[in-house]
Simulated scan of single mutants.
Amino acid sequence: MGQILTERPLPLTHRPSAGRQFLQSPTVSIIAIGAIVGVSYTLAKFAVANGIPPFAALFWQLFGATIILLAAMVVRGKRLDLSPQYLRYYIISGLLGVSGPQLIAYVVLKHIPAGLFTTLITLSPLATFMMVSVVDRQLLPLYRLAGILLGLIGISMATLSSFDAGNSGYVWVIAALGAPLLLASGNIYRNRAYPKGADPLALATGMLGSQMLLVWPVLIYRGYSFSPVDIAGTVEAAVLIIGALTAIGYILTFAVQRTTDGVGFSQVGYFATLSGIAAGAVLFAEPLSPLLFVSIAVLFLGLAVTNGHLNLPWR
C-alpha cells in the first residue's frame, strides 16, 4: 500500500498573517485595477474635452504604456515571445480588452459624464456571466450569480439616482454599451486562451505593443499632429498619466488572470465605477450620490460571494 502523505502545517512564525494573506489575494489587485480604470476614464474625458482626437489619445496612451513595459522587461532581463500562439493572443486580447473599449470611451466621453460611462462598465460582470453560460451551455453556480447581482445592486444604489441619460443623448449611451460587452468578451478570451506558464509582464507588453502598432497607421493616415512628448500643460500630462496607469493596470490584470476566472475578474467593473464617480466629482463636479458608502458595503459583499470568500449554506 502507498504511504499517505499529509501536508505539515507551517510553524506559527512562518505563517502569513491574515492581513498579509488579504494583501496577496486577488481581491486587492481587483480593487487596484478597478481604481486605475476609473481614474483613467476620467482623465480620458478630460483629454478629449480639451480637443485631443480619440485616435491620437489612444495611440499615445498605448505608446507610453508600451515604453514603460519594455523598459521593465529590459531591467528584468525578459524577452518577448513572438511565436504565432502569442501573437494571436496579443492581438485578440488587445482588441477586445484595450483598443475597442478605450476607443469607445474616447468617443462617447465627449458627450456623456465620466460617472455615467463607468456606471455602464459595471454591466461587464453580468455580461461575462451570461456569455460564459452560453459558451458552456450551462448556468454557473447560483452563488456566483447572486454575488454579481449584489454588486450590480450596490452600484445601482449609488448611480441610477444620480445620472440622467436623457440629457446626454441615448445614442451615445447605447454606443457606450459596446465597451462592457467588449470587456466581457476580453475577460473570457484571456482566461481561456491564457498561454500556460506565460509571464504577466511579457503578456501585457505584447498586448499593448500590438495595439500601438495597429493604431499607428490610422494616426498617420488621419494626419494627427498632437504629441504629449513636450509637456506644455495639464492635457499632455493627463495623456502620459493614462499611459502609465495602463501599464500598471495590465501587469496586475495578467497576474490576477492566473488566480481567478473571467467572471471573478470582471468585478473590476464595480471598482472602476466607484473610482470613476469619485474622480468625476472632483474633476468635473459631477453629482455624487449620498448612497455611495452603502453601495461600497454591498459591493464588497457581492465580490466576496462571487469569489467564494464566504461559506454560504446554499453553495
Rank of each mutant, 00 (worst) to 15 (best):
A105Y: 00
S83Q: 15
Y170A: 09
L145E: 04
Y224E: 09
M157C: 03
L201F: 08
L82E: 09
P195C: 06
L299K: 07
Q21G: 14
P217C: 06
A127C: 14
A158P: 00
L312G: 05
I277T: 12
F254I: 11
V239W: 07
L299T: 06
A272T: 15
R190A: 13
K110Q: 14
F293I: 06
W314I: 06
A165D: 03
Y221I: 15
L177F: 08
T119G: 07
V263H: 00
Y221F: 13
R20K: 15
V132I: 11
R79L: 10
Y221W: 15
L140A: 08
G64L: 04
F46M: 01
I231K: 10
A175E: 05
I220K: 05
A165L: 09
V298R: 00
S185Y: 00
M212Y: 14
I188S: 02
A49C: 13
S185F: 03
A244Q: 04
M157T: 13
T42V: 04
R192L: 12
A114W: 01
T66Y: 08
R258T: 14
A65G: 06
R190K: 13
L152H: 07
L303R: 06
L62G: 09
I121E: 02
T159C: 05
T246R: 05
K196S: 14
G262W: 05
M73Q: 06
A71D: 12
P125G: 08
T119H: 05
G280K: 00
R258Y: 15
A35Y: 15
A35T: 11
S25C: 11
G178P: 04
Y270F: 13
L182Y: 05
G34V: 10
Y250I: 08
I251Q: 09
L126M: 12
S83Y: 10
P290L: 04
V28K: 02
L214A: 10
R315Y: 14
T42K: 00
L299F: 14
G308I: 07
G100D: 03
P113D: 03
F265T: 13
S83H: 06
L116I: 10
I104G: 02
L145W: 09
G269H: 07
M1I: 14
M212N: 03
L5N: 13
A179Y: 04
I52L: 04
R15F: 15
V235I: 14
S295W: 00
L126C: 08
